[in-house]
Design a protein around this nucleic acid. Structure first.
Lengths: 218, 218, 218, 218
DNA sequence: GATGAATGAGTGTTCATTCAT
DNA sequence: CATGAATGAACACTCATTCAT
């Protein structure tokens, strides 16, 4: 029956989702080698052998977590980008979604940041490519901004791409109790745009005003 | 006799320095568990047993790297901070020295960043405390700035402390080939001060003009 | 209905034959534990579960190969033995058929030889018994020969039984390129009979002359 | 001290000897994969890690057993071979020592026979080469015999080399209770020489008469 | 103090076997 | 009956740590 197939497929992907989720939590808190496959299997309520049916190895499972979430994040950001609209809107949307995503998947985010500084093996795991895509999206927005004249000429797009992502990461690390978290985003956008913008526009948009737009991936 | 003792003491600290250095390189490139004590001992030209005379355990050796460098970094930054001078100068100096230090010790820096996201064991290792000190230095500067009126009221000091450190980290990740690296610092300072400042002053200072001030720890 | 049953029965024995054959090849080339049930199932075009319907376990499947072929070999040798005819003819026939069989089933032969030295579990697997039957056939021939006076008294039948089987195995191992393989048999018979015989008869019989007699099991 | 060095070296080789011995017993009785490193370590009274200090891997340990004994066997046989003496003496000596050795190391012998039929990996393990050396020794003796005219022309040396080794293996398999074991050797020599010889000499030599000559490696 | 051989706890991975479909 | 996804026992191998020299 087709329902059979569907149910099986559903079960399989459900299982993958579950494994990725519990593994994320474990890998985020402990070091790669502190996490053992038995733990993952137990918490995911599957046999250890099942892990090896779904993932080639522990390494593969680990990188699959990053690939899995990073791919979804990129899809979300690609959807939000609109070449016809103005740069500031795109930029705000980008920051907003990035922040939302990392709030939604804090475990994944910490894993990703740990791996970011790795020098080897990136090519093999396919993660380097995904990171490039992500950087590309931000870069594209800044380049558009430069053309539209909303970003100062002296701002090298590649450089401020990295600086922006660093700022977002800084925001993540700042204790949540400082003001409301949402306030942080507003500050970040304000600082960034005052810092790089030509100043021709009013950028401040309250977090709450936009929150209705980001239900998509929750 | 006394020369013997001196020589031994000298040898001891030399050995520690040497071990920290080679261990930094190993831990930066590979994962914690990919680095084994045999490797460290061999590269440091000491016996494996000696490592255990100088450090309690592998963990201790590992965290000692971070403590060792972080302590020095904090000392440097403390020296540069001058409560009588104005905020902008202090801020510039802070960023400059941070950047210099991380250029000088890229291995350490990558290790530190990897550990930054750890939640557990920080208290035991004593690193959390050092990080707090470091944040405190930046925070103090921002708070001073707020009082002096060079930083907008809306800028929460704790928040922009994290954002600033994130920006510096972003700068580190951006490919070196983009402009000169020094240019990056100028952009960062410019963005930051335009972003958070009240705008009453000219902030742009060319990198070269200041370079004479940072020979201290080279 | 009955044709159904027939077809199923037929399929069953066909399947067993097929499994035994592919498993023989696998077990001959690799070690017991290098061969996995998935491999066997795949090559035999059956599901893994089917293997467990037809054989109790992997061990059972393995020993079934030996039992299966050894039983057939014994049947062939029993047929050729004729108590009314003279010893030399029986002996020649024995060697000839043994050699033919092992040429026909080289995979099985190598497996058998590997297992020959096992001390444990033989009773359980039922293979020890079959080997005893086979030795018994050779033994009987030598004992007959002793009675008939064609074999020297000093030749202990049990001893030369083992020596003969060892010689055949030695022949198997000798590189095929040495002369023709058939020549090897002639030499073996010649050596054996000169060695154990009383010398009253001419024993040399060319291989080709006898080849018509061994089509039975081809 | 030199005694230190000696003692250490001695301890090391003693340990290797002990491990080889207990491992031989285990590998002879059970299959390669039924034997686990923990068992070997426990029976040899060493830690598991020590096994890995002395042998690269389980495979290496396994093949080392064969290499270790085979090398010694070849040395013994090389010593006994004397090109100036006559073939029959050399042949007798060869058989005698082979048989003695295999009585002394029955575990090793069974392992060796199991491996003899392997097709792969021989080159890597270096065992194929040793076997060739052993065959070469026997072969050389037969070739010498042919030249001296004590072996019939029709006897292809390579072929009877394999047949001889097969006979010895057959002798090994024959139940020990049949006569005395020593009697078996006499029969074997008798059968072989009557079978392949030109018959110009008396070959029978009682086992006991020669037994004084084989104390060397006991 | 310095050394490195010895140790064994810990873990990734395989694969025979089961059983729901 | 046939199937193959799920399971977990079993095992090779690593490496931090110890301690006799």
């Amino acid at each position: 029956m087709s329902s059979d197939t569907t149910s099986k497929t559903s079960k399989r992907s459900e299982k993958i989702e579950r494994i990725i989720t519990v593994a994320s939590e474990l890998f985020a808190d402990r070091d790669y080698h502190q996490v053992c496959m038995d733990d993952i299997a137990e918490r995911a309520n599957v046999g250890k052998g099942t892990l090896y049916n779904l993932f080639e190895s522990k390494q593969d499972l680990y990188f699959s977590i990053i690939r899995f979430r990073l791919t979804k994040l990129i899809k979300i950001l690609e959807k939000t980008y609109d070449s016809r609209t103005d740069t500031l809107k795109n930029l705000r949307s980008l920051i907003l979604h990035l922040h939302k995503f990392m709030s939604k998947h804090p475990h994944f985010y910490r894993i990703w940041k740990k791996e970011e500084n790795r020098v080897d093996q990136d090519s093999r795991s396919g993660i380097g490519m995904l990171q490039q895509q992500l950087y590309g999206l931000v870069l594209k927005t800044f380049e558009q901004g430069e053309k539209q004249g909303v970003i100062r000429r002296s701002m090298e797009p590649e450089l401020i791409t990295h600086i922006l992502l660093g700022m977002i990461d800084g925001l993540r690390k700042s204790p949540e109790t400082v003001y409301r978290r949402e306030r942080g985003i507003d500050v970040l956008v304000e600082v960034l745009m005052s810092g790089i913008g030509t100043g021709g526009k009013e950028l401040k948009v309250l977090y709450e005003e936009r929150s209705h737009a980001i239900k998509a991936y929750e």
